[in-house]
């Protein structure tokens, strides 16, 4: 056979398809937390709403907070707040339907076990570390804000007022304080009533269920964050649902479980694209043979 351009293209295409057919790592169900992953258990019954954790958080992240006394202002509880680029954690108050004592729930990025933001990020600026936190690398970030769209909790905030160096802002369990190991987050250290417990997520879950069993009058058996969106590093003990405090009702599956399986399914072994282009090539060849009077070379140039 005489070497022709079309022959070459055919061989190249077949080689490309064969190379693409190698087994690719595809998604097989839920991701589990690594055994040493850290988390924080929030006891909304113990929390007194002193907002010191907000102060400590802003200090830890270099956000130069106002004086501690200004956090004694309780009027902020009149509406449900969300984390912002200046406050990565905010305390919300809610009145359960049973009419009993008010609950306080601190709201921030939950550092998911299988984070949708890290799955969505095009450039791996957001990454789940084995130590537990979901960290952010501003040098990789393009500022596309797809992570914010992807987050089922709508937690990440963004520097809309920064024209040139905007960052995605959220809780990282204070991972920036000590590079090598997971430090105790600033909010946990400042909490005066031990409403926050820091430790391995597995231990915290055991502790949480122990508390719900010991005090069924104080805690519902549901630990928020154990299963929500595939599980989170932040876990919540509460007497009543915390939805009105900013923690949405979510299915147990991480949203990225679906997107990743679709994404990898469509391109599995590159079979679908290869078949499509193969079909296209056949049709083109047939069309060409049907019009013999057209000069052969012009057809290829768009």
């Amino acid at each position: 056979m005489k070497p022709t351009r079309r022959g070459f293209l055919g061989i190249a295409g077949a080689a490309g398809a064969a190379a693409a057919l190698r087994p690719s790592a595809s998604r097989g169900g839920a991701r589990a937390a690594s055994p040493q992953a850290a988390g924080v258990l929030v006891d909304t019954h113990r929390c007194i709403g002193c907002r010191r954790c907000e102060f400590a958080c802003q200090t830890s992240h270099g956000l130069s907070p106002p004086p501690l006394s200004s956090f004694e202002d309780k009027s902020v509880f009149e509406r449900t707040r969300r984390p912002t680029r200046r406050a990565f954690t905010v305390v919300n108050r809610l009145q359960p339907a049973d009419g009993g004592r008010e609950l306080h729930a601190k709201l921030n990025c939950l550092n998911c076990v299988d984070p949708a933001c890290a799955s969505a990020c095009l450039v791996k600026a957001l990454q789940k570390t084995p130590e537990g936190p979901v960290t952010y690398d501003q040098d990789r970030c393009m500022g596309c804000r797809y992570c914010m769209v992807a987050c089922p909790f709508e937690m990440p905030a963004y520097d809309y007022d920064d024209p040139l160096h905007p960052q995605v802002r959220k809780c990282n369990l204070c991972a920036h304080l000590v590079p090598a190991q997971q430090p105790v987050p600033a909010c946990v250290r400042i909490c005066p009533v031990e409403a926050l417990t820091f430790g391995p997520r597995e231990t915290l879950l055991a502790l949480a269920h122990e508390r719900t069993r010991a005090h069924p009058e104080l805690y519902s058996p549901h630990v928020y964050g154990e299963h929500e969106a595939g599980g989170t590093s932040w876990l919540y003990l509460a007497r009543a649902p915390l939805h009105s405090a900013g923690l949405p009702k979510l299915p147990d599956r991480a949203p990225n479980e679906l997107t990743e399986s679709v994404q990898h399914g469509v391109f599995k072994g590159f079979a679908a694209p290869a078949m499509l282009y193969g079909l296209l090539a056949l049709v083109a060849r047939q069309a060409r043979s049907r019009i013999p009077e057209e000069p052969a070379d012009h057809g290829d140039k768009p």
Binding site: L122, V123, C141, M142, G143
Partner: peptide, 26 residues
């Protein structure tokens, strides 16, 4: 204009940065 850091727009095309799990990556 929409990207916060448009000069990083080439990052997804670099194999060590691109995240094939992301739909927007595709």
């Amino acid at each position: 204009a929409d990207l916060g850091r448009p000069w990083n727009i080439w990052h997804p095309f670099m194999p060590w940065m691109g995240n094939p799990n992301s739909v927007l990556f595709e």
